[in-house]
Structures are given as C-alpha cells and as structure tokens.
Design a protein around this nucleic acid. Structure first.
Length: 677
RNA sequence: GCCCCGUUAGCUCAGUGGUAGAGCACUCGCCUUGUAAGCGAGCGGUCGUCCGUUCAAUCCGGACACGGGGCUCCA
C-alpha cells in the first residue's frame, strides 16, 4: 500500500494511505475530537486524508471541540427522546454558547420528571459507546429515509437556502447531504443501526467520548424561529470536556443566580415592582433611591462639564409630534395607546428626541451655536410585550440619560468621537472596564429604514471610523439600526462575563429633515443640521440592574446607600457613636447607628448582609481612647483607629471612587480637596 | 403575543376537600454584650382575584392579574 505525505499540526508526516485521520493523530499521541483539513471544514476522525492534506487537530477543550461535543450530545438527546417517545418528530439540534438544544414535536410538553428519565436514557446511550457513522445520501434517498420526519424533509428542501434559520446549518449546511448513523455493537459483535439523523456533522467518534453533560430545562420554541410557525418543545442541555468543567459551569450559573438583581433588590431593600402599579413599572425604595440619585447626579455633572445643556420635557404629547418624527408609523405597537382629550390624541412618549428637536427649533439657530448639546433624564414608556418584561433590564417605564447633539455634517465625526470617549470614561468610573462595540447597520432587504443610500453610507462610515479609532473590538450587527440611522452600541461585560448593551450613539439625518431643523451658516444660507442621539447609561433602570449584578450588591463606597454603620458594643456607647455619626454626616457621609437591642455580633452580621462598606465598632475602650474599630465588608478589621483617621479614610475612599474599601493603604488614596487640611 | 410552570404571614417556604404552620423579620420584656445569628413572649394570613363544581374550596375546573423559564421582539 502506497504511503502519503501529510502535514499534521505543522509537522510533516508520512503514513500509509487509507489511514483515518483519527489513527494518524492517535499514532502521534495527539488528543482530538475532530480535525480541520486544509484550513477548511472540520472532519470526523474516521475521515481518510489524501496525499498532501494539511491537518490540524481540534482538541475537545476548545470552542470548536466543545461545539462538536455538544452537537453530538444533542444527537444522544434526540435518540433518547425518540426511544422514550416514539412519536416525537425531530426539529433541529445545534450547539449554542455553553450548551446545546434539540427541538421536538411531541404530544405534550416535557416535565422535569421527563427530563430526568431522558437524561437517564442518554447515560445508557453514552455507556453503549455507539459509533457516529457518516453517510452521503442523495436528496431522494434522504426523503425516503426520513419520510416520517416532516421537519427534516422541510430542511432538505431548504438545503443551501437555510441560512436564515439559526441552527439549521448544522443539519443541512454542507454542499452534500449527509446522514449520521448511530451504530451499536450487537450481541454477535456486529454493528447494528439504532438511530440516524440528517446532519452535516462532524461528530465525536463514539457516544462514549462524551465526558460530562446535563439537561437543563425545557421550553417552547417556534419552528424556524418564526412566531407564525408551530411551537416545538425544546430541551436545553450542556456538555463539557470534563466533570470539573461541567461543575465549574454549574457553579457559574449558581453565582449568576446569587447575583440576580431582582433578588438583591429585595434583599437590600432597593426597589420593587408593585402589582398594583403594573408589570414592568419599578418603584425605587429609599436605599435604591440613594444609588439612583448618586448615579444621576454624577452623570448630570459630567454632561455639564462636557458642554451639554440640561433641559426638561413632559411625559406626554399630542399625536402629531410623533407623526412628524416618523416614529408613529413604525412603533405605534410598542407605545401605550393614546388618550383622547379635548379632541386630540395624546401619547405617553416612548422617546425624547422629538421634544429636543422642538427646543432646537424654538428660535433661529446660528452655526456659532453648534454643536448644540441637549441632555435630560427623560422618562419614556414602552409597551413591551408581556413575555419580555424582566426585572430592571426590560421594563415598561424607563428613564434614559438622553442627549442629542445638533451639529453640521462636518462636525459630526469629531462629535461622535467626543461622545464615544465620554461614554467609555463614564463607564470606567462606574467600574465597568471590559467592553466591546457593536455597529448596527441597515438591512438592505427591509423596508423598515428610511433615508437615501448615500446618507446611510456616510453615516455608517462616520460611526465605523470613530468606533475603529477607539481600538476596541468592533462587532457588526447588520439590520440592527434604528429606522432613522445607524448606531454604535457599547456592550459591557459584567463581573461574571455576561454582556449587556448599555450606551448607544446614533447618527440621524432623518429627523432634522422631518422637523425642518435649520441653522444659518456663515455665508448666510440656511442649512440642515444632523443630530446625534446618545445615551450613556442607556436607561437608568437597566444600568442600575447591571451594576447591581456586577457588584453583587456590594456597591463601591461612593454609591453605597449606607456608607458607614456604627455599631456600639454596649448600649451606653450609643451616645459616643451618635456624635461620631453627626461628624460623618457633616462630611457628607451616609451613616447609620445601629442602636437596637441586639448583640454586636448580630449587628455585624446585618451590616455584612447589607454589604455596608465600613463598620465603625466602638466599646468602652474606644470611647476612652477617642477611637473606633474599623471593619470592612471583606472581613478585615483594624482596632483602635483614631476617629479622625477613620473619617478621613472613608471620605478618601468615596472621593477616589474605589470599588472596594481599601483599608490597608490609606496613604495611597487620592485625598479629596476637603481633606487636605 | 405564544408555550410551560408558579402565586399560602413583610421575606423564604411546609401543609390539608371540613377556613392553616415553621424559620427569619417586626413588637414587647429580660440580658449589657469586643468582631457573622443571646433568651423568652407576642403581633401577623378573607391561602393572588373573580366565576364555577361541591353539603363544604386555600386544595378540583375556568378566566384574569402578577411572577418565573424559554420563543418571538427590543426605537
């Protein structure tokens, strides 16, 4: 048998022809689940390379390796479901971030008990070490073999044109149609066919190569992602390269749950959603109110420093305004229905820009005023569908830190750069420093977008350039633009790696035209400005929720509702702490004295649970010495700290906007102006 | 909007076709405490709302409200 030459992970090798890539890698002691061939498609290990092929091993603990593992596990899931529910029809079963799913058309939804049973059956299939065996079929044969699978038949018809269906490419995405057979070693040691699925592959060599998996939940999902289609029952699962990796993932989910802003909001008495008010409508309690006010005060201050004028507008408006702005035809469905009053229809506003446009238009404008920057906390109301409302991150009443910059087209690039760097510095001040940008553009095939191609092109280029200049990662988001123009959004990673859309910058040439906005140029002519929408937090509510989860409720001292809790050891020490608290208040520090009858240990517990950054504990010895014992919420404590030093330390922490109270290096802190004496 | 699940004291949750319980919180009393829960007593619920079935409904059925997990959507 002739030999062939291969390049394996960068090194040349000679092997016998007809050797599988799995055998080649095994011979070299390389662990892999699939192989990339000639820099292109991933292949099963059973694939046989030809002379001159370049092979890269794909280990299981890589993104691609896990995707193969998860897709293979999805097949095991589907086989288990069809064994237990022979009438179940198959939808699709792709890998997703951190896991996989498979959709089924079944008589009744799966219960948690069903999932346990299915998972048990899956473990049996894994134990059987079934082979995944690839087989190329013609369309005609595939139709014959899958005659009982209506959804698969539909996919065969879509082959090549299924790109619009997320997940479907793993079934029929290749150039040729393939079926993967699951083969089990029978009693007489021969391989017998136990299950098969239309699939592009690749797969693990056998089900026995699945190290760790777990079914997570079931839910309904529309076939091919359209709410016009039938709903299928989807089972979500996750699979990992080891039990340890699976456990780490489950731990992360538990941590996310522990950080859930809805739970923390209740535990720390920050906000609630009273049924009596309605779904998606938040009330902030006093402690949440402190955080919200500090956030707003800071952002307002920064806007003023950056040249914005603070304005105010009402919550409702006559219908005509939203016709002029162009919003109504597109977004009537997501606005609260109109109120009829004295012959006019009034709408709760769902956006602030039309009102700012009226401020711009309220008198003649000169080019000398541009860029004219208007800013406010504008409360808007959006009738989000009942199923999408979620805590603070998706609400029906929200307040945007909304700004609009009116400028000449020539000024726009500089203005956008200015806004972008402003946004990034602001986010960093709030402790978010891990983000990337997204550029949302128009979808040419949709009629949702208005304006000329040239204007869109210009606007998109300007945004793209500003985004690229930051050096941050830029991810395209085709079709995600607003109807009036493209946008950049800032996606921030929180403390456990989830991403959230926060700030946005949108370039708008349509509304200035709709409102007939104009300014007088230096040559005396009337010109139309462009407007740039931007929101730094996005919405105060969502930003509040994200911050809460980012810090798991342990807000930095400058944001913490209570910055210092004073804890007396004996009741006669209360007076001493009351006086100390007065001094702290005089320094603008938010302080409470816990004068309840509880033991001091219990008071410490309570302050810890409330994530208060500083505790000042004082007993007879401290009173004697004019000192306190300073305890930080990380458990570190220093005893016998002179009162003046303790106060100074707290005010320095606040002024420096430190994330965690820094006990040990107070000298390293930037002293605030008030503390220089 | 669609599918599934849930709703019992302020919170977390038991429980039953014959109108209910625990822990924490809260109130009061005792204790005077040195770095993550001292002891005791008490208060507190038309069992989400409405309509049905039943001699009798917190429990069974339906509708609605609110919440949760997804889908779809997100100016």
């Amino acid at each position: 048998m002739a030999d062939i030459r291969l390049t394996v992970d960068g090194s040349p090798h000679v092997v016998a022809s007809a050797t599988t890539v799995g055998a080649v890698l095994h011979g070299l002691g390389v662990e892999a689940v699939v192989a990339r061939v000639n820099g292109e498609a991933l292949r099963d290990l059973a694939w046989v390379p030809g002379d001159g092929d370049v092979i890269e091993s794909v280990p299981i603990d890589t993104d691609e390796g896990r995707a193969v593992l998860r897709h293979s596990t999805a097949h095991v899931l589907a086989q288990a479901v069809q064994q237990l529910y022979p009438d179940a029809k198959l939808g699709i079963g792709p890998p997703i971030t951190n896991g996989f799913y498979y959709d089924f058309d079944v008589e009744r939804p799966f219960t948690p008990e069903d999932l346990e049973q299915i998972e048990g059956r899956m473990r049996k299939i894994v134990k059987e070490r079934q082979r995944f065996s690839r087989r190329v079929v013609t369309d005609e044969d595939a139709r014959k073999e899958l005659a009982e699978e209506p959804y698969k038949l539909e996919l065969i018809g879509l082959k090549g044109g299924a790109a619009d269906t997320e997940g479907a490419e793993v079934e029929v995405g290749g150039n040729e149609l393939t079926i993967y057979d699951n083969l089990r070693r029978g009693a007489a040691s021969e391989w017998e066919l136990v299950w098969k699925d239309l699939c592009r592959g690749p797969h693990l060599p056998t089900t026995g190569k699945i190290p760790a998996f777990k079914l997570m939940r079931s839910a309904a999902a529309y076939w091919r992602g359209s709410e016009k289609n039938q709903q299928l029952q989807r089972i979500y699962g996750t699979a990992w390269e080891s039990e340890e990796a699976l456990q780490a993932h489950l731990d992360l989910l538990e941590e996310a749950e522990r950080r859930d802003h809805r739970r923390i909001g209740a535990d720390l008495d920050l906000f609630s959603f009273p049924d009596e008010i309605g779904s998606g409508l938040v009330v902030f309690h006093p402690k949440g109110g402190v955080i919200k006010r500090v956030m707003e005060d800071y952002v307002r201050q920064r806007h003023i420093e950056e040249g914005f004028d603070y304005v105010g507008t009402p919550h409702i408006s006559k219908q005509g305004l939203f016709e002029t702005s162009g919003h109504l035809p597109y977004y009537a469905d997501t606005m609260f229905p109109p109120m009829e009053m004295e012959g006019s229809n009034y709408y709760l506003k769902a956006m602030n820009c039309p009102m700012h446009n009226l401020i711009f238009r309220s008198r003649g404008r000169s080019y000398r005023e541009l860029p004219l920057r208007l800013f406010e906390f504008g409360s808007v109301y959006r009738f989000e569908k009942s199923g999408v409302v979620h805590g603070l991150t998706r609400v029906r009443g929200l307040t945007m830190d909304d700004s609009h910059s009116y400028c000449t087209a020539e000024q726009a690039p500089a203005e956008i750069q200015h806004l972008l760097s402003f946004i990034l510095s602001l986010l960093k001040d709030f402790g978010l420093d891990d983000f990337y940008l997204e550029l949302s553009t128009r979808d040419d095939s949709s009629d949702k977008f208005i304006g000329s191609d040239e204007d869109w092109e210009t606007a998109t280029r300007v945004l793209e350039k500003a985004a690229t200049d930051t050096g941050l990662q830029l991810v395209p988001d085709p079709g995600g633009a607003a109807y009036y123009g493209p946008k950049i959004s800032v996606q921030a990673h929180d403390a456990i790696g989830r991403t959230w859309q926060m700030s946005t910058i949108q370039y708008d040439f349509n509304q200035p035209a709709g409102f007939g906005l104009e300014y007088q140029a230096s040559d005396g002519s009337r010109q139309q400005p462009v407007m740039i929408h931007s929101a730094k937090f996005g919405s105060i509510e969502r930003f509040f929720g994200v911050l809460t989860e980012h810090y798991a409720g342990a807000f930095p001292p400058w944001l913490a509702p209570v910055q210092v809790t004073c804890i007396p050891i004996r009741s006669e020490n209360v007076e001493y702490l009351d006086k100390l608290a007065e001094r702290l208040r005089g320094e603008g520090i938010r302080v409470e004295v816990d004068d309840s009858d509880d033991r001091m240990q219990k008071k410490i517990l309570r302050a810890q649970q409330q994530k208060v950054p500083f505790m000042f504990v004082a007993g007879p010895r401290d009173v004697e010495a004019g000192a306190v014992s300073v305890r930080y919420r990380n458990g570190v404590e220093r005893r016998g700290v002179p009162v003046d030093d303790a106060i100074l330390e707290v005010s320095r922490n606040i002024a420096a906007r430190l994330v965690e109270p820094d006990a040990l290096n107070p000298d390293a802190l930037v002293p605030p102006e008030s503390a220089t004496s």
